[in-house]
């Protein structure tokens, strides 16, 4: 990678990992949600470094614009801003650390030792190519995903709806 991209990658990585740690460690849920937005923005930057500008734009629109707002709405609606400290620093939290560390290190070793048939620099697939893949080759999965989204929206409305007659 060129010098500039290397620097940008390191800065974005620090931003992503630090805000991901903040999501897990903050007691106040609003703070967690705000650090989650920081993490999503960092991931959008990583997509731009990978020459996936369309995906980066969709990331900002969908994650930063929609999902974060949904999460903050849920926090506000439940009014349950802070977690109980006793519920956070319990046994389960400390058991989870070695499990994740071991699995993560194992995957890192596999990733570092594998051989890849990769190009030197990230390629830049045109938006036309992605669109024609999406609407020709993957047209059926695309329709299936939109159906799943529709079902999820209807289900979410029904789940969150107040029952009037009971």
């Amino acid at each position: 990678m060129p010098e500039f991209q290397q620097t940008a990658f390191i800065l974005l990585s620090i931003m992503i990992l630090a805000s991901a740690f903040c999501v897990v460690l903050f007691r106040n849920l609003i703070y967690s949600a705000l650090s989650m937005i920081g993490c999503f923005l960092g991931v959008a930057g990583i997509f731009i470094l990978l020459h996936a500008e369309l995906v980066a734009a969709a990331q900002v629109l969908i994650y930063v614009g929609a999902i974060s707002v949904l999460v903050i709405f849920a926090i506000m609606l439940t009014g349950h801003r802070t977690g109980d400290l006793r519920l956070f620093f319990h046994k389960q939290a400390w058991v989870a650390v070695p499990i994740c560390a071991v699995a993560g290190i194992a995957l890192m070793v596999v990733m570092a030792t594998a051989t890849y048939n990769a190009t030197e620099d990230a390629q830049n697939p045109s938006d036309d190519a992605i669109a024609s893949l999406l609407f020709n080759e993957y047209a059926f999965p695309f329709e299936l995903v939109s159906l799943a989204l529709l079902v999820a929206i209807v289900g979410a409305v029904i789940l969150a709806m107040k029952e009037k007659n009971q």
Binding site: L29, A103, G104
Partner: peptide, 16 residues
């Protein structure tokens, strides 16, 4: 990988 396992740590450790 690092981001994935920070996320899975959060899923396993937090209760909210």
């Amino acid at each position: 990988i690092a981001l994935f396992f920070i996320g899975s740590w959060g899923v396993l450790a937090r209760r909210n």
